[in-house]
Amino acid sequence: MSDTALPGSAAGVSSASAEMTGARGAKPQRRISPRNIMIYGTLFVVCVYYALPLWVMIMTSLKGMPEVRLGNIFAPPMEVTFQPWVKAWAEACTGLNCDGLSRGFWNSARITIPSVVVSILIASINGYALINWKFKGSDIFFTILIFGSFIPYQVMLYPMVILLRELGIYGTLQGLVLVHSIFGMPILTLLFRNYFSSLPEELFKAARVDGAGFWRIYFQIMLPMSIPIFVVAIILQVTGIWNDFLFGVVFTKPELYPMTVQLNNIVNSVQGVKEYNVNMAATVLTGLVPLFVYFVSGRLFVRGIAAGAVKG
């Protein structure tokens, strides 16, 4: 596949953030004009739609159950309580375990961190090899990889199960890390390949004349020049892997379920009285990590998800 690979999405990666500067519409008009009232009015209504669920989530999680039953889900709590949060974190039950979401949180952390590291390491080396050390057939494998990223995961789930079972890591965290590394590979490889192709080729040539080999050029020349794209890849992977549900539920067992799976089991469990405040606290807790990444990374996040969107 040539440089035209996924042109729109690849362009989106670079332009989504680069072009975020300066609007291009008509000249700004008087502060209060019918046109402005319409624009800002519409945007305000839209923002209410987007913001409301987060508001409701947090407000509900800060109320006691009596107040939840009485009242208005949009109203702020009359009496703030953190009890639902404590319960969601440390006491909520899934099946036989009653140690709350904390278990899922630590599982997710133990899944996400190695998966991010391994997948990014592999993909960045792939991208580097694809650009600078082309060998016969390397582009064919890359093309398969890209088209493979469009195959629904469901098609490859069972063969993966067999593969992990053969390797003896089915149902373990290592197995899930491998799954995330494999299915993250297409998009990350594309990301790094495009980035490395934008670096001057002469630098690579100069390093070869200077006697540096494959690994030395990667670690001493390429890596230090690629910090931004590594940050983008980390954003993409942390949110993607943290939010994963399907792989978690298929490739791990209940004690090792990631946070999303555990959250779903807590909230959608049919036993007992529904504690909506605890459920909402659990939901907020599960969303905290990606939200934190989102608010901290700002514009880089747009680049990250624009890159990751191809994954679907």
Binding site: P200, E202, L203, K205, A206, A207, V209, P224, M225
Partner: peptide
């Protein structure tokens, strides 16, 4: 051999 490139190709870091 020693080689000099058009874009200088100096290692930026």
């Amino acid at each position: 051999i020693g080689m000099v490139f058009q874009s200088y190709a100096l290692y930026p870091q």
